[in-house]
Design a protein around this nucleic acid. Structure first.
Lengths: 154, 154
DNA sequence: CTGCAAGCTGAAGTCAACTTCAACTCAAGG
DNA sequence: CCTTGAGTTGAAGTTGACTTCAGCTTGCAG
């Protein structure tokens, strides 16, 4: 009776809408048993998977990548604390990298507030002595995009 | 001859695809003069606006919000360094907040790796003595979503 | 003057991550 | 047994941020 959860219960416990939980299931992020009448019943361990999905999204990881990570969990047994810890560790590094990037951006922004130039390349970054004033193929602005190219190949 | 830029030149200088620049213009983020033959010519100050847009996106701000911010720039004159600095300051605070949140998430994750629980609420967060084991309306997992509700009103 | 890369437009397409809808079925209290 | 709220499905819609396309026009190098 508290062995498994309905989708409504899991929704409330996880803070994720039922429609999103069904969507996660379609993507293979979580799994559910079915009752005789075809309703989903979730093992309580699924709560942990949902938590992992949400945390990973916070770190800015796509559901596809999250699915790949979850696929590395042992299928045959309930994942242990060590299994989860291993997964979390790789995320932790991405999180650290993200924090590092944002801190750099903030500091660059601080440095640029004085001159108001906003180019980040002329100010404090890696482009100390560039001749941006000339017209030619000049200095590029700002950082590369977070993901993907400005003009991805057709 | 280097007074204004074609869309191709602005694209290269800013690292933003021409199609994106046209899109930004439709949204009112940047502006362009037109030649007799209806081609866009950008003042060099537009480079700064594009930079501001890209930087702001890095901070996770939507184009709509960026437009609102840019609308607060003086329309009648070319924005000064102080104008830009004022804008950047509000972003800096959001950046700081974001960094704070990510650092917290990382530390919570660190704290949770030991026990592998991933709930973040039971481990280190604001829910020290909760009885999650009981079934009832139990503790909620994880953090609120980055933006919006799990089930926004219909 | 000509050729052709670069630019123009509006409409449609894409992608991720969901939500909404319609039409139906299940499960549990009274 | 009946009602009612919770659950089911596939298909279609939504949002944000763009890209792609077709069909046409400009502008500059030779």
């Amino acid at each position: 009776m508290h062995e498994s959860l309905t989708i409504g219960q899991l929704s409330i416990r996880s803070g994720v809408a039922p429609s999103a939980l069904r969507y996660y299931e379609r993507l293979g992020l979580i799994r559910a048993e079915r009752t005789g009448g075809n309703q989903r019943r979730y093992a309580r361990t699924e709560l942990r998977r949902v938590a992992f999905v949400r945390i990973s999204q916070q770190v800015g990881i796509s559901l596809e990548e999250i699915r790949e990570a979850l696929d590395s969990l042992p299928a045959s047994r309930v994942p242990t604390a060590e299994d989860w810890a291993r997964l979390s560790l790789t995320w932790r590094e991405r999180l650290n990298e993200k924090i590092r990037l944002m801190t750099k951006l903030r500091d660059d922004l601080d440095g640029c507030i004085g001159c108001g130039c906003l180019s980040l390349q002329r100010c404090t970054l890696n482009n100390p002595g560039d001749s941006l004033a000339g017209e030619g193929p000049g200095a590029r602005l700002v950082l590369p995009r977070e993901v993907g190219d400005p003009t991805p190949a057709p």
